[in-house]
Simulated scan of single mutants.
Amino acid sequence: MSIPVINAQAVTIPVRYEDSWQDGFGARGWKLDVPGRGADVIAATPYCGDRIPTSVFVHDVVDHLLCGFSLSGYVDEAAALIQLALRTHSDPVPDFQQMVDEDLIPGLGQHDDWVELLPASLNASPEGSVESRDSRLLLKGLRESLGDGALRALLTAGFVREGWKRTYDARDHWEGLGLRYPDRGATALALQELFEWMDATVREQQWMHATGQFLIHREHVTFRFSRPEEAGHQSVNVTSGR
Rank of each mutant, 00 (worst) to 15 (best):
A39N: 11
I13W: 03
Q83S: 02
A170C: 06
H233L: 01
F225P: 05
R51S: 13
D134R: 01
S90Y: 01
D103P: 00
P35C: 01
G176L: 12
E77H: 08
A188K: 10
V15P: 03
K140N: 10
H233S: 11
P35N: 05
L189Q: 11
A150Y: 08
P228A: 05
R133P: 05
L154W: 04
L139P: 00
I82T: 06
S2Y: 04
V93W: 03
P53Q: 01
E196L: 14
G147H: 09
T156M: 10
L65G: 08
L139H: 05
G141W: 08
E18Q: 04
D199W: 06
S240T: 03
L66K: 10
L194Y: 00
R224D: 07
F159E: 09
S72T: 02
T45H: 13
H217I: 00
S72P: 08
S72N: 12
G109F: 15
L191S: 11
S226M: 14
L122E: 05
D134S: 10
L81M: 04
F57S: 09
G49Y: 11
G128V: 09
A153M: 05
N123D: 14
S2V: 04
M198F: 02
L81S: 00
H89C: 09
T167K: 14
D76V: 01
F223A: 13
I42A: 11
S125A: 08
A153C: 03
L108T: 00
S2A: 15
L65V: 07
R184D: 09
L146D: 07
D76S: 09
Q98A: 11
W197E: 07
A44T: 01
L139A: 07
